[in-house]
Simulated assay, not measured.
Amino acid sequence: MALVVSTYMNTYWRFKPHLLMVLAQICYAFLYFITDASFNHGMNPHVFVTYRHIVGGVVMFPFAYFLERRARPKLTLALFMEIFFLSLLGVSLTLNMYFASLKYTSSSFVTSIANTIPSLTFVMAVILRLEALDVRNPRGIAKILGTLISLAGVITMTFYRGPAIQSFLGSSKHTTNSVHKSWTKGSILIIASCITWSIWYIMQGITLKKYPAQLSLTTWINFLGAAQSAVFTIIIQHKQAAWRITYMNDLWSIIYAGVVCSGIIIFVQLWCTKQKGPVFVTMFGPLATALVAILAYFILGEKLYYWQNTGSGHYHYRSVLGLMGQR
């Protein structure tokens, strides 16, 4: 009996990072449905980013303060600036660029590009020698092929949108030049967002070696990221009404996103990064996209895709996954 229990425990500890990352993606999938209604009500996404990380910081602070009093290293100025930059990459800069890119492109395009983060992270990890690349191993070959296919898809989706199709209404108001400029701007924003996101994952592993207190690091990331996002939001949003929470659903979505996604899940990702490395953590990202599609189809009865006119004579693929970058 003891041998059986020991076997189960060994299996659990071996696959604990995998289990935690799967649970994290399930939480991200529910985040889409909870916050979708808030954005439909008119809640500003940049304000949402600020509020959720304030909540995340407040929730994680007491755990970090009491549980890591002895394990927390001294915070030097150099280390603080490193955490400040880490917060900039993972919270304020990345998420705000993501939401800005949604204004200029399509939701499916942004979601598809965001799913290349594992490939970008893998390339950066190999360059920085944080990930071993064995071309003689089938796993190593699979990683290389997956990365090449993923990056090729990004280039194709960014620079090729197919030939123009004449509208059935015969309208001449389509301005391909302005739409092309918007699409290019959005493409640059989402690609830049994915790059900073990948750097964030890589940098987590580096920072954890100097500051292994994961609860405290999670708290710092939330508070600093919230402050940075607040400054950015104030610059682009001058209406005080945008900061008001007018619906109860908005409040609950902020609480859920703050406590679960900005608090617990960031801590889980830091722990898994320390155990398995940054590439391992990013590998589970596309799972949330698939879960959202499945839940939206079977529970909400939404169609997984449809073709929609972009207004420029082009038709592009849209899906119900447009807000997956809320993470």
Results as ranks from 00 to 15, higher is better:
residue 29 A to I: 07
residue 81 M to C: 14
residue 58 V to L: 14
residue 66 F to Y: 15
residue 18 H to Y: 15
residue 43 M to L: 15
residue 71 A to M: 04
residue 50 T to D: 03
residue 68 E to A: 06
residue 50 T to E: 06
residue 90 G to I: 07
residue 91 V to Q: 05
residue 89 L to R: 01
residue 23 L to S: 12
residue 91 V to G: 02
residue 33 F to G: 07
residue 76 T to P: 02
residue 70 R to I: 02
residue 82 E to L: 11
residue 54 I to W: 10
residue 29 A to C: 14
residue 58 V to G: 00
residue 18 H to D: 14
residue 60 M to L: 14
residue 23 L to E: 05
residue 62 P to K: 08
residue 37 A to K: 13
residue 80 F to C: 08
residue 30 F to A: 13
residue 45 P to W: 11
residue 28 Y to W: 14
residue 60 M to N: 02
residue 79 L to C: 12
residue 75 L to V: 13
residue 67 L to M: 12
residue 50 T to K: 01
residue 41 H to R: 09
residue 43 M to F: 12
residue 30 F to L: 14
residue 87 S to L: 02
residue 83 I to T: 14
residue 33 F to Q: 06
residue 48 F to D: 05
residue 90 G to N: 13
residue 65 Y to H: 08
residue 23 L to Q: 04
residue 66 F to R: 08
residue 76 T to Q: 03
residue 26 I to V: 15
residue 37 A to S: 13
residue 88 L to Q: 01
residue 33 F to D: 09
residue 87 S to D: 01
residue 76 T to S: 15
residue 69 R to A: 13
residue 69 R to F: 11
residue 85 F to H: 01
residue 59 V to W: 10
residue 32 Y to C: 02
residue 63 F to Q: 03
residue 81 M to K: 03
residue 55 V to D: 06
residue 53 H to E: 07
residue 54 I to T: 08
residue 67 L to I: 01
residue 19 L to A: 15
residue 18 H to G: 00
residue 81 M to S: 10
residue 52 R to F: 08
residue 60 M to E: 04
residue 63 F to G: 03
residue 47 V to H: 04
residue 83 I to Q: 13
residue 67 L to K: 09
residue 25 Q to A: 06
residue 64 A to D: 04
residue 90 G to V: 09
residue 68 E to Y: 10
residue 49 V to M: 04
residue 91 V to K: 02
residue 74 K to A: 10
residue 90 G to Q: 13
residue 84 F to S: 11
residue 27 C to K: 00
residue 44 N to H: 10
residue 61 F to C: 08
residue 69 R to V: 10
residue 29 A to Y: 05
residue 67 L to R: 07
residue 21 M to R: 04
residue 39 F to L: 07
residue 46 H to C: 06
residue 80 F to H: 11
residue 80 F to T: 08
residue 79 L to S: 11
residue 76 T to V: 07
